[in-house]
Amino acid sequence: MTAIDWNRLATRARRGRRVRSALLLAFLTLVSLPVILPFFWVVVISVSARTGGVEAAVLWKACAVLVPCVLAYAGVHTFIASVRARIIAGLLLGGLCLIGLYVLIGADLHLNNYRFLVNPNLIEDIRGAATIGGQFPWVWEAFGNSLLVALTSMTLKVIVATLAGYYLSRFAFRGRSFFLQSLLLLEVFHPWMLTIPIFLVIFWVGLLNTLSGPILVLTVIDLPFYIFIMKGFFDAVPWDIEMSAMTDGATRRQAFRHVVLPQVRGGIIAISVLGFIKGWEEYVFVTALRTGNSYWVMSTYLYYVAEDVMGVDYGLVAAVSVFYMLPSLLLYLFLQKYLTQLTLGGVKG
């Protein structure tokens, strides 16, 4: 029997692992490039463009610094095993990157495009008195309205979907399967197909030109899907835990609150994030359900900045875009753990 060269085998396995992870990294980078680049460009424009034009040169210069740094870090990550060394290398590269950016494009950067945040009379300043009369609001008013729409519809959706999901998961009642099927059927119709009937209904109940209109509509059109998600999460909670709580002296409601609800926390957070982002981004119904400029939200604000008011000031448009997407992005980054649970159908790892 020949002696086995364990060292050689181990070296080979280590090398294989590294190559695989390097390839994976390269692949993911390539795939995400078309997604990341436009975002990056918007950010670059928002902090560099001056009235009238867009300097593509700034983008290329920034890329010239960032791409080598990212590649170098990928190399470090692939070939250096020690975590401490990785962190040190990462910090060094980050520093280099900042210095490079400062030297190459530092002079081009400015925050002038973000003046809309502090100037309530932006449009009057640009266009003169043409828009006087409060037609075009300060951005914070739109921000507040968007927040109101997003938070209220999110809260309504979460409460209704949680209670309905629990009921559907736990109670057998006449017509339960019919109800579940019709919930699915509702998903077949795209809500935009229903814009006209919805407009009429909102008009008849007298909620046209109020924020309650879009809030209610947004809540209702997402509910079937969210109810389904929550039912899935409740289905995964063992039935006997609840029964145990009830023999321990809890009422059904107490058992729900103390024992069942904590188990579906992930689902509630996930639909909260989705619900918030949905309301935050909404454009179609907020425009369809107003007849004048009775209220402004962030999406309509961005639309008018881009289309109506000054068309060519890309710096301003980019700055508003960055400001607009920041809340969704932050939420998503911090709570993505819960969103990925959704695709696993609520099964906890």
Binding site: P238, I241, M243, S244, A245, T247, G249, H258, V259, Q263
Partner: peptide, 14 residues
């Protein structure tokens, strides 16, 4: 006021 030990234990995971 019945004490029960379930076959699956039914402990509260949270």
């Amino acid at each position: 006021n019945v004490g029960i030990v379930f076959q699956s234990y039914a402990l509260y995971p949270n």
